[in-house]
Each structure stands twice: as structure tokens, then as C-alpha cells.
């Protein structure tokens, strides 16, 4: 059975191997038969053959041998250097990976610690008020109740920041200074009103309660007694 001729594309694909003698006898025969239909490809074959005929005398390996003759020695020296250099571990991927990994871990730890510290220093107003109310020893223990009311102690007032320093850092204290100032102001207002009350306590109200029951004689007696009072 006669095989169908090769088309132009197929001929082009086989052309180099045909010129370099790498086709088998069957392919060779088919190529020579099919190319008769394409005169421009016949010309192409002639061009390639004439050039590569002149190039076939080239000794590329000899040229390359010249260019690469020192490579074995250089490679050997470099390998020896790599093996004997004590600092070589610095350039090894494993070492670089470990160092990079440690760096990342340290970075993450430092970020976490920074966040924790930030959480303790940045206190919103509500938290600050609650802390003041719940955790801080009373600034003015005298105000805890009217029963325990006593005169203000100037020394305790001067220790005022120290009381907070036990529970907060100074930074937190100053960052919340506005809140504390409010609290102090409120406390002073309360204190003044309580003190007003305190100085009115000695008044004897029995006289007022029985005032309507007094008669003329009682009044005269009171006036007589008042005359004996030294002002």
C-alpha cells in the first residue's frame, strides 16, 4: 500500500533531520518523494546543507574544552572551601530558616506583650470610675458614712497620689487625672455640706418643740436667766 505524501508542514518538521542524516530509510524515502511538490523547500534543503556542510568540520567540543578547562579545579576548590569554612553554617538554608523563624517568634511575642501592657495602661472612663470605686482605698475615709465623719487629715490629702500608685501606674494615674479631679471635687462638695451639718448639731431643739406650751412666767424666767449669761 502506497503511503500518502507528506504535506508542507510535515516536510518542514523533518527537514533538519533529513539534512543531518537522522531519518530512517523509510522516512528518508518518503521525504524525498514528497518534497518534489515543493520547489522552495528543495531550495531550503540546499541552503541548509551547504552551510552545515562547512560547519561540520567545526570542533565545538574542543572549543568548549578550552573554555572550561579550569572549571574542575575551581569547582573542587570551592567545594573544599565550602566543607572547611567554619562560618559556612551561616549561609545554610536550615540555619537561615531557624534564625528567620526565631525572629518571627520574637516579633510576635513582643507584639503580644506590647498589647497586654497597652490593655493595662489604657483604661476607659467607666473602668477608671469602677476601679476608683471598687479597688482604690477610700481617698477620704471620713466620707464613708456620717457616723465615721471626722476632721480632714492634711497629711492624708498630701498622700493622695500614692494611694493610686498602689493600684495604677503613674501613667494611668495622670491619664485619668480628669476623672480623679471630678471625683475630688464631688467629694469636697459633699464634705462642705457635711461640715455645715456638723456645726449645726449642738443646737437644742427641745425648746422649739415645747415653745407653744410656754406661758408668761416661763418667758420671764428665761429673760432673768439670760441676764445672768456672760457674752
Amino acid at each position: 500500500m502506497e503511503q500518502k505524501n507528506l504535506n508542507r508542514k510535515q516536510l518542514e518538521e523533518l527537514l533538519p533531520d533529513y539534512v543531518f542524516g537522522r531519518l530512517n530509510s523509510h522516512e528518508n524515502e518518503l521525504f524525498e518523494k514528497s518534497i518534489q511538490n515543493y520547489p522552495e523547500l528543495i531550495q531550503e534543503v540546499e541552503n541548509v546543507r551547504s552551510v552545515f556542510y562547512r560547519l561540520q568540520n567545526m570542533d565545538i567540543d574542543r572549543l568548549l574544552d578550552k573554555k572550561t578547562k579550569y572549571i574542575p579545579v575551581k569547582v573542587s576548590q570551592r567545594l573544599h572551601h565550602e566543607r572547611t569554612n567554619p562560618l559556612n553554617f551561616l549561609a545554610k538554608p536550615a540555619f537561615v530558616s531557624i534564625v528567620a523563624g526565631l525572629g518571627v517568634v520574637l516579633l510576635i511575642v513582643s507584639i503580644i506583650f506590647t498589647r497586654i501592657n497597652k490593655d493595662t495602661t489604657v483604661i476607659d472612663k467607666t473602668t477608671a470610675r469602677n476601679n476608683v470605686a471598687d479597688n482604690v482605698p477610700p481617698i477620704f475615709p471620713q466620707l464613708d458614712g456620717l457616723d465615721s465623719l471626722a476632721l480632714l487629715d492634711d497629711e492624708k490629702l498630701s498622700d493622695f497620689p500614692a494611694l493610686y500608685a498602689d493600684n495604677f501606674s503613674l501613667n494611668a494615674f495622670y491619664s485619668e487625672a480628669d476623672n480623679i479631679e471630678d471625683i475630688v471635687n464631688e467629694s469636697l462638695v459633699d464634705l462642705i455640706s457635711v461640715n455645715d451639718l456638723f456645726f449645726t448639731v449642738p443646737f437644742d431643739d427641745n425648746l422649739f418643740k415645747n415653745f407653744e406650751k410656754l406661758d408668761e412666767t416661763d418667758f420671764q424666767q428665761i429673760i432673768e436667766e439670760l441676764k445672768n449669761v456672760e457674752l
Binding site: K9, P16, N47, V48, V51, L55
Partner: peptide, 14 residues
């Protein structure tokens, strides 16, 4: 196809 084009270009340049 690439092989053919390479051979043709080399032949032309050389």
C-alpha cells in the same frame, strides 16, 4: 517546528 525555524535562521546567518 521550532527545530526547523532554528535551523533555517542559523543557516541564513552563517
Amino acid at each position: 517546528a521550532n527545530y526547523f525555524h532554528a535551523v533555517r535562521k542559523i543557516a541564513s546567518a552563517m
